[in-house]
Protein backbone atom coordinates (compact mmCIF):
# COMPACT_ATOMS: atom_id res chain seq x y z
CA UNK A 1 0.00 0.00 0.00
CA UNK A 2 1.29 3.42 -0.91
CA UNK A 3 0.90 5.82 1.99
CA UNK A 4 -0.22 9.40 1.49
CA UNK A 5 3.30 10.64 2.14
CA UNK A 6 4.78 8.34 -0.47
CA UNK A 7 2.05 9.34 -2.93
CA UNK A 8 3.01 12.99 -2.39
CA UNK A 9 6.66 12.05 -2.88
CA UNK A 10 5.76 10.43 -6.22
CA UNK A 11 3.78 13.50 -7.28
CA UNK A 12 6.73 15.72 -6.53
CA UNK A 13 9.11 13.45 -8.43
CA UNK A 14 6.67 13.54 -11.33
CA UNK A 15 6.72 17.32 -11.35
CA UNK A 16 10.52 17.22 -11.47
CA UNK A 17 10.38 14.74 -14.40
CA UNK A 18 12.26 12.29 -12.20
CA UNK A 19 11.31 8.65 -12.68
CA UNK A 20 10.87 6.23 -9.81
CA UNK A 21 10.40 2.50 -9.36
CA UNK A 22 8.92 0.65 -6.40
CA UNK A 23 10.47 -2.62 -5.35
CA UNK A 24 10.82 -4.92 -2.34
CA UNK A 25 14.00 -6.47 -1.02
CA UNK A 26 13.20 -9.64 -3.01
CA UNK A 27 12.97 -7.83 -6.30
CA UNK A 28 15.61 -5.24 -5.48
CA UNK A 29 18.61 -6.72 -7.27
CA UNK A 30 16.73 -7.31 -10.50
CA UNK A 31 15.13 -3.87 -10.37
CA UNK A 32 18.45 -2.11 -9.95
CA UNK A 33 20.03 -4.27 -12.66
CA UNK A 34 17.31 -3.17 -15.06
CA UNK A 35 17.83 0.53 -14.34
CA UNK A 36 21.57 0.94 -14.58
CA UNK A 37 23.80 1.61 -17.52
CA UNK A 38 27.25 0.09 -17.18
CA UNK A 39 29.79 0.72 -15.97
CA UNK A 40 28.06 1.25 -12.65
CA UNK A 41 29.44 1.96 -9.20
CA UNK A 42 27.87 2.21 -5.77
CA UNK A 43 28.31 2.15 -2.04
CA UNK A 44 26.97 -0.63 0.14
CA UNK A 45 23.39 -0.23 1.29
CA UNK A 46 22.31 -0.25 4.92
CA UNK A 47 18.95 -1.87 4.08
CA UNK A 48 18.29 -5.45 5.28
CA UNK A 49 17.99 -7.92 2.45
CA UNK A 50 18.71 -5.41 -0.28
CA UNK A 51 22.02 -6.00 -1.98
CA UNK A 52 23.38 -4.54 -5.18
CA UNK A 53 23.67 -6.62 -8.36
CA UNK A 54 27.12 -7.76 -9.48
CA UNK A 55 27.12 -5.24 -12.30
CA UNK A 56 27.52 -2.51 -9.69
CA UNK A 57 31.07 -2.08 -8.44
CA UNK A 58 30.75 -1.40 -4.74
CA UNK A 59 33.39 0.81 -3.14
CA UNK A 60 35.10 1.73 -6.41
CA UNK A 61 38.45 3.41 -6.89
CA UNK A 62 38.38 7.06 -7.88
CA UNK A 63 39.43 6.09 -11.38
CA UNK A 64 36.51 3.64 -11.64
CA UNK A 65 34.19 6.35 -10.36
CA UNK A 66 35.37 8.74 -13.03
CA UNK A 67 34.56 6.34 -15.84
CA UNK A 68 31.24 5.08 -14.42
CA UNK A 69 27.96 5.96 -16.11
CA UNK A 70 25.66 5.03 -13.21
CA UNK A 71 25.87 5.22 -9.45
CA UNK A 72 23.62 3.61 -6.86
CA UNK A 73 23.67 5.04 -3.34
CA UNK A 74 21.37 4.94 -0.33
CA UNK A 75 19.28 7.90 0.79
CA UNK A 76 18.88 8.50 4.52
CA UNK A 77 15.36 9.67 3.86
CA UNK A 78 13.12 11.39 1.35
CA UNK A 79 11.14 14.63 1.59
CA UNK A 80 7.70 14.14 0.05
CA UNK A 81 6.74 17.79 -0.54
CA UNK A 82 9.82 18.42 -2.64
CA UNK A 83 10.71 15.03 -4.14
CA UNK A 84 14.08 15.33 -2.43
CA UNK A 85 16.40 12.56 -1.33
CA UNK A 86 18.87 13.10 1.49
CA UNK A 87 22.35 11.80 0.72
CA UNK A 88 24.63 11.46 3.72
CA UNK A 89 28.36 11.99 3.28
CA UNK A 90 30.25 8.90 4.40
CA UNK A 91 33.86 7.74 4.68
CA UNK A 92 32.94 5.30 1.92
CA UNK A 93 32.51 8.18 -0.51
CA UNK A 94 28.72 8.22 -1.00
CA UNK A 95 28.93 11.95 -1.76
CA UNK A 96 31.30 11.86 -4.76
CA UNK A 97 29.82 8.55 -5.94
CA UNK A 98 26.35 10.08 -6.10
CA UNK A 99 27.67 13.14 -7.92
CA UNK A 100 29.97 12.14 -10.77
CA UNK A 101 28.14 9.57 -12.95
CA UNK A 102 25.53 10.72 -15.47
CA UNK A 103 22.76 8.62 -13.95
CA UNK A 104 22.20 8.55 -10.21
CA UNK A 105 19.97 5.90 -8.65
CA UNK A 106 19.25 6.79 -5.04
CA UNK A 107 17.53 4.14 -2.95
CA UNK A 108 15.10 5.27 -0.29
CA UNK A 109 12.95 3.14 2.01
CA UNK A 110 9.26 4.03 1.71
CA UNK A 111 9.12 4.23 5.51
CA UNK A 112 11.87 6.83 5.44
CA UNK A 113 9.96 9.39 3.41
CA UNK A 114 8.94 12.31 5.62
CA UNK A 115 6.18 14.75 4.68
CA UNK A 116 8.04 18.05 4.50
CA UNK A 117 10.99 20.22 5.46
CA UNK A 118 9.93 20.78 9.09
CA UNK A 119 10.14 17.01 9.68
CA UNK A 120 13.36 16.81 7.67
CA UNK A 121 15.02 19.52 9.76
CA UNK A 122 13.88 17.93 12.99
CA UNK A 123 15.85 14.91 11.88
CA UNK A 124 18.82 16.96 10.73
CA UNK A 125 18.91 18.86 14.00
CA UNK A 126 19.37 15.90 16.29
CA UNK A 127 21.46 13.94 13.79
CA UNK A 128 23.92 16.73 13.03
CA UNK A 129 24.25 17.84 16.65
CA UNK A 130 25.04 14.29 17.67
CA UNK A 131 27.29 13.19 14.81
CA UNK A 132 28.44 16.46 13.22
CA UNK A 133 27.58 14.82 9.93
CA UNK A 134 27.11 16.21 6.43
CA UNK A 135 24.29 15.57 3.97
CA UNK A 136 23.02 16.77 0.64
CA UNK A 137 19.33 17.44 0.05
CA UNK A 138 19.24 16.45 -3.61
CA UNK A 139 16.20 17.29 -5.71
CA UNK A 140 16.22 16.16 -9.31
CA UNK A 141 19.26 16.22 -11.57
CA UNK A 142 22.07 18.78 -11.67
CA UNK A 143 20.89 21.77 -13.66
CA UNK A 144 21.98 25.11 -15.00
CA UNK A 145 20.36 27.94 -16.91
CA UNK A 146 23.59 29.91 -17.14
CA UNK A 147 24.19 28.99 -20.78
CA UNK A 148 21.01 30.62 -22.01
CA UNK A 149 18.64 27.70 -21.59
CA UNK A 150 17.88 25.03 -19.00
CA UNK A 151 20.33 22.14 -19.31
CA UNK A 152 20.57 19.08 -17.07
CA UNK A 153 23.89 17.63 -16.03
CA UNK A 154 25.89 20.79 -15.43
CA UNK A 155 28.46 19.30 -13.07
CA UNK A 156 26.47 16.42 -11.59
CA UNK A 157 24.04 13.76 -12.86
CA UNK A 158 21.96 14.42 -15.96
CA UNK A 159 19.34 12.00 -14.78
CA UNK A 160 18.04 10.66 -11.48
CA UNK A 161 15.94 7.51 -11.03
CA UNK A 162 14.67 6.92 -7.52
CA UNK A 163 14.19 3.39 -6.23
CA UNK A 164 11.58 3.23 -3.47
CA UNK A 165 12.08 0.22 -1.27
CA UNK A 166 8.80 -1.08 0.16
CA UNK A 167 8.72 -3.57 2.98
Amino acid sequence: MVTETVATFEDSLGQLDVEWTHTTSDGFEATVASLIEEPAVGVSLPFDGASLPDAVTVDPTAAALESARTSVTPASFGVAEYGSVVLASTPGGAEPVSLYPELHVPVVRADDVVPGMPEAFDRFGSEIREHRSSSIIATGPSATADMGDLVFGAHGPKEVHVVILDE
Binding site: Y82, S84, S89, F124, I128, R132, S133, S134, S135, I136, I137, A138, T139, G140, P141, S142, A143, G156
Partner: peptide, 9 residues
Protein backbone atom coordinates in the same frame (compact mmCIF):
# COMPACT_ATOMS: atom_id res chain seq x y z
CA UNK B 1 14.13 24.21 -4.24
CA UNK B 2 17.49 24.08 -5.99
CA UNK B 3 18.94 20.75 -7.07
CA UNK B 4 21.33 20.65 -4.16
CA UNK B 5 21.19 22.03 -0.68
CA UNK B 6 24.45 20.88 0.85
CA UNK B 7 24.50 20.72 4.63
CA UNK B 8 28.21 20.40 5.23
CA UNK B 9 29.79 20.14 8.65
Amino acid sequence: ITSYVSLLT
